[in-house]
Design a protein around this nucleic acid. Sequence first.
DNA 1: AATTTGCGAAACTGATTGGTTGCGTATATA
DNA 2: TATATACGCAACCAATCAGTTTCGCAAATT
Lengths: 106, 106
Amino acid sequence: MRRDVFQAIADPTRRAIITLIALQAMTPNAIAEHFNTTRQAVSKHLRILTECELVKQKQKGREIYYQLEINKMKEIDQWLEQFKKIWEQRFNQLDNLLLTIKKQEK
Amino acid sequence: MRRDVFQAIADPTRRAIITLIALQAMTPNAIAEHFNTTRQAVSKHLRILTECELVKQKQKGREIYYQLEINKMKEIDQWLEQFKKIWEQRFNQLDNLLLTIKKQEK
DNA sequence: AATTTGCGAAACTGATTGGTTGCGTATATA
DNA sequence: TATATACGCAACCAATCAGTTTCGCAAATT
């Protein structure tokens, strides 16, 4: 089963959860109250986020706090790196890609 | 139906296609030859990529070249911005988030 | 000790997805 | 003009997914 960071952030609810717990670890119930959804639904999202190591659990009595593994978010940034090179290059210099396409078009 | 950039890059094949056409516009057949898949499968991915405006078509006779809309990739970067602030802050200063959690733990 | 609360896990369901096959159309070539 | 090629689109199928319901367990409260 594919379960990586990109799969994790594909879902808007999961992105909202990530943003929510980025600054403050929270329990599934607390997260669910922020959206219009049930604890179980949130719990499922959290499981996916945990599986791909975007989120970490912290047991505190019978409560479980979920906190963002911010370092994992860097993976997305690293993947974007290759495109950043392209768009920065375009900003600074002649647009080589368009030139290539123009040539193909004769 | 949710069809945004994040949904688009969730699929590994689509990420590969994006990387492939980033520097060089290509036809569906040419793309398919790069992977072990059929033109139709690639075509479906391209349709999704087109729908969320990550990719643009360029008709050239009976061939259709697909080219990456690199500007759209910036949207992902913009979303990451909020987390970049956090991880840079952590690198430079005291880790406020962990402090908060520690406090919660008494 | 009994009840409530917070939670994960499993079972189920309807929606969505990725991929294949087949068809129709337009361009190129013979 | 007949054939081959490049392609999009629609139909189909098996796999997966998101969300709900139900259950059981463990910690907290009474």
